[in-house]
Nucleic acid binder design. Structure first.
Lengths: 171, 171
DNA sequence: GCGGTAGTTGACGTTAACGTCAACTGTTCG
DNA sequence: CGAACAGTTGACGTTAACGTCAACTACCGC
């Protein structure tokens, strides 16, 4: 969530760094990797994971899909896969895949993409409705509060409060 | 979610009815009750739960808080409690509570209420941002798709496709 | 060369929010 | 009157998404 840019150079990140900057734990990153959501650019000979700084966005992205849209990791994987389709189409071109094949890849991505947009729109609409209902609940409460407050004030004027130090008690 | 009005009279509902109409399971209702989120108007002598039809809205309400805002049941309880404060203030009046006390109840409710609104607004804003980013991702994909498609078509015109029956092969 | 820090895998623990099942009770209907 | 059906409590099972811990390795500064 709290993605700090700090140094946006291409220096590969260790898992701890990535985790800290992305605001997740290392455990989460490994879990997500196991799940196929993120992938270190290389497992060093020592077995150590290294990540491109670009992964930072991806991680934040995943969290948004999770928290904002309430997607499960499995659903997120699908989204990401279709998202990657564009990238795959690009590398497919380099690999010499037919235009028709690349087109299919991209169209799939577009398909999945618009389903996601629909989901967002649905959420937006429903939250908005919900919010509006609540706004006028709040309005009614505020009105009632004001009424009561004026009643209280009136009563206070009739029989002045005892708690005030200015109200001399020794008459 | 799919709250059917059907008969909105005051006939008390059995748990199965309420569950079906609110689109939840009976288990969920009992669980929520255990949690203090819903409460049957009376446990019949037989131990059977009866609900006012009004509970239907409450149940739907809870689901919205859960799914749309991602609140936990514990958080929802807090929200509901403060929401009930208005109702409690009303009955407090009947019970002869002081206006000051009732005012405090309502103001608490207003407080909690505006925190909830903030949360909704935050969500709305973040989803909206997210959505917009994705809209132009989609735009770029669509452009790329169109490019590819025209390339494919061009190629098809150069070397007509074999699959079409109309394309006479005997030249 | 050694303590401290950061990384690895593997295994088991945890929490929320229910699902499921068993054993029992009460109502209704042919 | 008996089977079907809806309800009850209580207990245990389940799933997702991690947390936590152990045992081990690798580098780094002194």
């Amino acid at each position: 969530m709290n993605v700090q840019p700090l140094d946006s150079e291409g220096a590969p990140l260790r898992i701890g760094e990535l985790a800290k900057r992305a605001g997740v734990t290392t455990r989460t990153l490994r879990y997500w990797e196991e799940f196929g959501l993120v992938k270190p650019t290389d497992h060093l000979c020592s077995g150590e994971r290294r990540y491109l700084p670009a992964e930072l966005e991806r991680v934040a992205h995943i969290r948004e899909l999770q928290e904002l849209l309430g997607l499960t990791l499995a659903e997120i994987r699908i989204v990401l896969e279709s998202e990657d389709a564009v990238e795959r189409a690009r590398s497919a071109r380099l690999a010499g895949a037919s235009r028709t094949r690349r087109l299919a890849l991209i169209d799939d991505a577009i398909e999945a993409h618009s389903r996601l947009i629909e989901r967002m729109d649905d959420r937006l609409a429903r939250i908005a409705v919900f919010r509006d209902e609540w706004l006028d609940r709040g309005e009614r409460m505020r009105v009632r509060s004001a009424e009561l407050r004026s009643e209280v004030d009136a009563a206070r004027r009739d029989r002045p409060t005892v708690g005030s130090p200015r109200t001399s008690r020794r008459a």
